[in-house]
Design a protein around this nucleic acid. Structure first.
Lengths: 193, 193
DNA sequence: TTCATTTCTTAACTTTAGTCAACAAATTTA
DNA sequence: TAAATTTGTTGACTAAAGTTAAGAAATGAA
């Protein structure tokens, strides 16, 4: 697990052994069971997550209905909104599978920045990248139909379709579970006829 | 215009006079006429923008149709995807109104980081904030209907509805211009009956 | 294994968005 | 100002998503 983390970091900055040890001393690795809720709506938390293995999901409960809006899998970081704006969380985060992740307090991060300025660089570059990626994703979502979005997902993250329940995928695609079911039947029909 | 920029920056870091002068020496202020295209699809550019006054819009041309996916108004920064990933731009950026903005080369930014590490801090905090905001926006988009999205926009950015042509707003809301027109008529009807 | 629960599909029906076309209104520009 | 272009509305029709309900299939727990 250490290596997964350090390989990821090495894409942005190079670390000395001392720096690696410093990170390890923070004891950030966590192993969590499928179904575990990491963050609840209304809760205040300063924790940031980085998925090493497994899958976590972000969801809202709106009028009693679960609305899943994001999944985070291997090598994806997640800084919840509430950790940044000091307000109660608008959403839940839970584990879709047994998951190994790092959990780090955001304030701890600030200390690290003071001690090792290169972490600051990594975090800047990383969030700029994530922001740009996120914008492209959003653009694709806006400019395509539910069916196109599903086909697109099939291309880009075929693993997700396997590992995640369909009714959760539905709201991720911005539609109802029944619609996703029909849309899939429609596609199969097309590929047959 | 200087003051608008420095007021914005002061929300993140405090600048000495020397630092302010350093920024001014970069000569980043631009005044652009309505309709000007700042970035074209296919073009490679390292420029980042920050809108001081006016409005710029990001759009794709897909099957000959313009698809507007974002607007940037007063005090909003935009780093195009192409400036980060060294690839030709997927989209256009043009001015919806006569606009005053700063244009800065992303490589120039890196130099500034070396000279004044606090800029690095500002950029990290800023992109983390933007990313979190963007995610919330995306979540709202996914979990609501076109009508709700329009009403939501009416609440949150009533100015946009005034200053931007409706057919551009339509794709921003993920629908066709005719649908936006009907949806608006529907809402008016409801508020009457 | 059996029962309970969760997840997925299907059907009938309603509502809304997409498409195409015509035209009205507003804006630009010659 | 007049003509041309852009922008917005409306109508008729098609296609797809939302809603409600029933039941089948898969999964998890006792």
């Amino acid at each position: 697990m250490k290596n997964l983390l350090f390989d990821f970091i090495s894409k942005y900055i190079s670390l000395t052994e001392d720096e690696k040890n410093e990170i390890l001393s923070l004891d950030v690795f966590r192993s969590v069971k499928k179904g575990t809720i990491l963050l609840k709506q209304g809760q205040e938390s300063k924790d940031e997550y980085f998925v090493l293995k497994g899958c976590i999901r972000k969801y809202y409960i709106i009028n009693g209905e679960e609305k899943t809006t994001a999944f985070f899998t291997e090598m994806e970081p997640l800084t919840p909104h509430c950790a940044i704006n000091n307000a109660p969380s608008e959403y839940f985060i839970s584990c879709v599978e047994d998951t190994i992740l790092t959990v780090a307090n955001i304030e701890l991060g600030v200390e690290l920045f003071n001690q090792f300025p290169k972490f600051q660089i990594m975090c800047r570059v990383l969030s700029e990248e994530l922001l740009a990626k996120q914008q492209i994703n959003f653009d694709e979502f806006k400019t395509s139909s539910p069916e196109q979005r599903y086909l697109n997902l099939l291309q880009k993250r075929p693993d997700l379709i396997q590992r995640v329940p369909q009714h959760q995928l539905a709201s991720y695609l911005g539609i109802k579970p029944e619609s996703l079911s029909r849309l899939r039947a429609r596609i199969l029909e097309k590929n047959k006829g």
